[in-house]
């Protein structure tokens, strides 16, 4: 397995009257196809680390190497292109666009990428939604879906452009037990069956135990 994502001496400080250290000199290597869980207490820096690895935030120090390339030196437009084509995000709250149907939400990243025709985009989006057992809810708006269904649509959206990396920020944090199990299973399968790298931030020890690697973080530092 090759290293797909590497963080070198990664730090993130928030400047202000009282400076805050979110991430402190973190070094990580994540292999292709690996299922990684980041655990830690609230405020320990789990989500901050995930946003840095997902190129949504810029580090104060250190480098992030995606497929061996240092992405920290890229401008916002290139980083947006990388997020679009190589990274899929899943958040604790599904964050679907409320005016768009499930299908339209899934189509959105593919339309932005612009590699497929409209008919191919719709066909592929439906395929992904069907694979996540959402065939009955394709044309529903987010407010017509349950929490678990919405989160599965969010997973479908994250998978839309066949990204190398799926980053999930407490994807089960807002779900009931049954939906939570279902989402855990889906994400595990994404890594196992599709060979994608999945990094999950979670409080849930049971979910973390499904991972190939667990990164425990306290006060912005990796403990194990």
């Amino acid at each position: 397995m090759s290293i797909i994502l590497k963080a070198e001496n990664l730090s993130k400080f928030l400047e202000g009257e009282i400076p805050v250290t979110l991430i402190n000199n973190v070094n990580i290597e994540i292999n292709s196809g690996e299922f990684v869980a980041i655990t830690g207490l609230s405020g320990s820096g789990k989500s901050s680390l995930l946003y840095l690895l997902g190129l949504l935030d810029k580090p104060s120090h250190g480098n992030i190497l995606l497929e061996g390339k240092n992405v920290c030196k890229y401008d916002d437009k290139i980083l947006a292109d990388i997020r679009l084509s190589k990274i899929g995000f899943i958040f604790q709250f599904h964050f679907l666009l409320p005016e768009f149907t499930a299908l339209e939400n899934v189509c959105l990243p593919m339309e932005q990428l612009g590699k497929l025709s409209s008919s191919e985009i719709v066909r592929k989006s439906k395929e992904i939604l069907v694979s996540l057992e959402l065939e009955q809810h394709i044309h529903k708006l987010p407010n017509q879906l349950s929490g678990g269904q919405s989160q599965r649509v969010a997973i479908a959206r994250a998978l839309a452009n066949d990204p190398l990396l799926i980053l999930a920020d407490e994807p089960t944090g807002n779900l009931d037990s049954a939906s939570s199990k279902n989402v855990q299973k889906i994400l595990r399968n994404v890594a196992t069956q599709n060979g994608r790298t999945v990094i999950v931030v979670t409080h849930d020890a049971e979910f973390a135990n499904l991972a190939d690697k667990i990164i425990h973080i306290i006060d912005g530092k990796i403990i194990s």
Partner: peptide, 9 residues
């Protein structure tokens, strides 16, 4: 959300 998905500013 749009920015996280990959939309430009």
């Amino acid at each position: 959300i749009l920015k996280s998905v990959g939309f430009y500013s």
